[in-house]
Amino acid sequence: MQDIRAINILIADDDEEDLELIEEAILNFEPNAVLHKVNDGKAVLEYLDELQDDKLPALIILDYNMPQMKGSEVLMLLGGKPRYQDVPKIILSTSGTPLYVHECKSKGALEYFVKPNTQRELDMLAEKMLALAAII
C-alpha cells in the first residue's frame, strides 16, 4: 500500500491571480500537494529559514520579477546553502528574456518557464514542473 503524504511546494509570485492559477493547475495533477504561497523573495527566505531540514519543500517555484528580491537573487542566496542543494527550483515568469534565463539557470534554477496565456497551457506546464521535480 502506498504511503500518501502531503507534498510541500513553495510558490513565490507578487501577482495574487497568478498564484491562484498556478495553485489550481498543480492541484489538478497532485491533489495531495500543500502549497505555501508568498508574495516576494524576502518572504521565501524567511519561510525557508523557519523550516527544519526534513520539512523543506519538494519544489520551489519563483517568479523572476518580485518586490524586495528578484527570483534570481533568491536563487543566488539559496545556492550558497547546502541544505537547499537538492530542492528543485524553477523560475516561472512573464519575461522570457534570454539574459534572465541564463542568469537564473547559472544560479541554480532547474528550469525557466514563461507563464502561458491559457489555463490549458498552464495545466500542461504544471504537469511538466511536477515531473521535473520527480513529484509525479
Rank of each mutant, 00 (worst) to 15 (best):
I11L: 15
V38Y: 07
G41H: 03
D49T: 15
P31D: 14
S93C: 05
V74P: 06
L21F: 08
E50A: 15
V44Q: 02
I90N: 02
E46N: 15
E17L: 14
D18I: 12
G96F: 07
P57N: 02
V87N: 14
I7C: 11
M76A: 15
D54E: 07
L77M: 10
E20A: 08
D18C: 12
G96S: 08
L59K: 03
I22F: 01
D49L: 05
E50N: 12
L19Y: 02
P67V: 00
E73P: 04
N8I: 01
N65I: 07
L56H: 05
E24K: 06
P67W: 01
M76K: 15
V34G: 03
I91M: 13
S95D: 06
A58I: 00
M69P: 05
N8R: 12
K70C: 06
S93V: 07
L10K: 03
L77P: 00
A12F: 06
D15W: 00
L35W: 00
P57T: 02
I26E: 05
G80M: 06
I22H: 00
A12Y: 03
K55T: 01
D86P: 06
Q85F: 14
L77G: 04
N39V: 10
L92G: 13
V87F: 09
V34T: 12
P98L: 04
Y84G: 10
M76Q: 14
G80L: 01
